[in-house]
Simulated assay, not measured.
Amino acid sequence: MNPTMLRQLWSLIEKTQANLLLKLDDASLVQSLLQQFKQERTLNHEEIHILNDYLYNRLSLIRDLAQQRY
Rank of each mutant, 00 (worst) to 15 (best):
H45Q: 14
S32I: 04
K38M: 04
K23F: 07
T16V: 12
L22T: 04
I62Y: 07
D26T: 10
S32F: 07
D64L: 07
Q35H: 14
L9I: 05
E40P: 00
K38T: 04
W10T: 09
Q35R: 15
Y70E: 06
L65N: 08
T16W: 03
N19I: 10
L29H: 06
S11G: 11
S32P: 00
E40I: 07
T42E: 10
A27Q: 10
K15Q: 14
T16N: 04
D26P: 10
Y54R: 03
E14I: 02
S28F: 04
D53H: 13
V30S: 03
K38A: 10
L29W: 05
N52S: 15
Q68K: 00
Q39I: 08
L59H: 00
D64G: 02
L43K: 05
K15I: 02
Q17K: 14
A27C: 04
L22C: 06
N52T: 15
L21P: 13
Q8M: 07
I48F: 00
N52F: 11
Q35P: 06
E40W: 05
A27H: 08
L43R: 01
K15D: 13
L9N: 01
Q8F: 00
L24M: 10
N19E: 10
I50D: 09
T42F: 06
Q36M: 13
Q31T: 02
E14D: 11
Q67R: 10
I13L: 05
L55C: 11
L9Y: 02
D25R: 11
I50Y: 11
R69I: 02
L22W: 01
A27K: 12
N57E: 02
L20V: 15
E14H: 12
A18I: 13
D64R: 07
D53S: 15
L12E: 02
H49N: 13
L43A: 06
S11R: 05
S32Q: 06
D53L: 15
L34I: 09
Q36L: 14
K38G: 03
D53T: 14
T16G: 06
E46M: 08
N44I: 09
L29T: 03
K38W: 00
L20F: 10
K23D: 08
K15M: 11
Q39D: 10
Q36A: 15
N52P: 08
D26H: 12
K23W: 06
L33H: 03
H45V: 13
L12K: 05
D64Y: 05
I13W: 03
K38D: 03
R58Y: 12
N57L: 04
Q68G: 00
R69D: 04
L43Q: 02
Q8L: 06
Y70R: 03
